[in-house]
Simulated scan of single mutants.
Amino acid sequence: MNYIQAIILAIIEGITEFLPVSSTGHMIIASSFFGIAHEDFTKLFTIVIQLGAILSVVVLYFKRFFQTLDFYFKLLIAFIPAVVLGLLFSKKIDTLLESPVTVAVSLLIGGIILLKVDDWFNNSSETEITYPKAFKIGLFQCIAMVPGVSRSGASIVGGMSQKLARTSAAEFSFFLAVPTMLGATLKKCYDYYKDGFILTHDQINILIIGNIVAFIVALLAIKTFIGFLSKNGFKVFGYYRIIAGIALLLIHFFIHPLTII
């Protein structure tokens, strides 16, 4: 991976991490086009630059992170399902991460669902998140372990299914991203450390630059997304996912197979 590729991937991460379009799926496809997806450092990079993205949440919602302990307990309860399922099915998840076709199909199916979400939950207007709601949102988030599903999309839809208003569901999804993505990053770094993976000086610099870029882009993406979502809903993201999913399937099967292994 060179610096230009790292910056492009970091921009993709920053834009897509908090949008319901799947950041992991987009980075899998982008790195596949670059021909670097099979590299161990690329796989590490796509996980570690999430730190830059989650830092943007902390900065934007700084005061919200100094609330009562109740706020953190709800985040913990919502985070538990991802921890349990992540540990139980980590190998299967890693296998799915190597499949561009899985990403394309997930984008397509998720897009169809997003076209209907606003109609299904058009009466969602509550703002209070109870403990049962937090746990159910955490269960929805686990669906995003399938590449292409979108962690933010799954958790936002999960919140709306519990009658939360779109903006309230989106903000809780952002907050939940902090422990979820931090946990995933630390686990992946530990796994690579345990396997004896050693970073070069250039790779360390690439990680630093990637995190900075992801942080800046994510700041802008979150601000734009909240305003857009409150006014327009999910349909545009649904159409985007459908177009992207179909395009990737056509490319894979009729033009050039996208391989990651």
Rank of each mutant, 00 (worst) to 15 (best):
Y3H: 10
I8T: 02
I11R: 08
L19I: 12
S22Q: 04
S23W: 04
T24S: 13
H26N: 06
H26L: 03
F33V: 11
F34L: 09
E39A: 13
I49D: 05
A53P: 05
I54W: 06
V58Y: 13
R64W: 01
F66L: 09
D70G: 10
F73W: 15
F73E: 06
L75K: 02
L76E: 01
A78E: 01
P81G: 07
A82I: 08
V83H: 00
L87N: 01
K91N: 14
K92F: 15
I93G: 05
I93T: 10
L96E: 05
L96T: 06
E98P: 00
L107I: 03
L107F: 14
I109Q: 02
I112A: 14
I113W: 07
L114D: 10
V117A: 14
D119F: 12
D119L: 12
F121R: 03
S124P: 04
S124I: 01
E126N: 14
T127G: 14
I129H: 03
P132T: 09
I137T: 07
G138D: 01
F140L: 09
Q141S: 05
Q141R: 07
V149W: 05
V149I: 15
S150Y: 08
S152D: 08
S155M: 11
G158A: 00
G159C: 11
M160Q: 12
K163W: 01
A165L: 06
A169H: 07
A170K: 04
E171A: 08
F172N: 00
F174Q: 02
F175T: 04
L176P: 10
T180H: 05
L182R: 06
A184M: 07
A184P: 04
T185M: 10
K187S: 12
K187P: 00
K187C: 04
D191H: 09
Y193W: 13
T200W: 12
H201F: 15
D202E: 15
N205S: 13
N205V: 11
L207T: 05
I208F: 12
I209C: 04
I209G: 00
G210W: 02
A214V: 05
A214H: 05
I216H: 02
V217P: 02
V217Q: 03
T224V: 14
G227F: 12
F228N: 06
L229Y: 10
G238N: 07
Y239I: 13
I243Y: 08
L249P: 04
F253T: 02
F254I: 09
I261N: 15
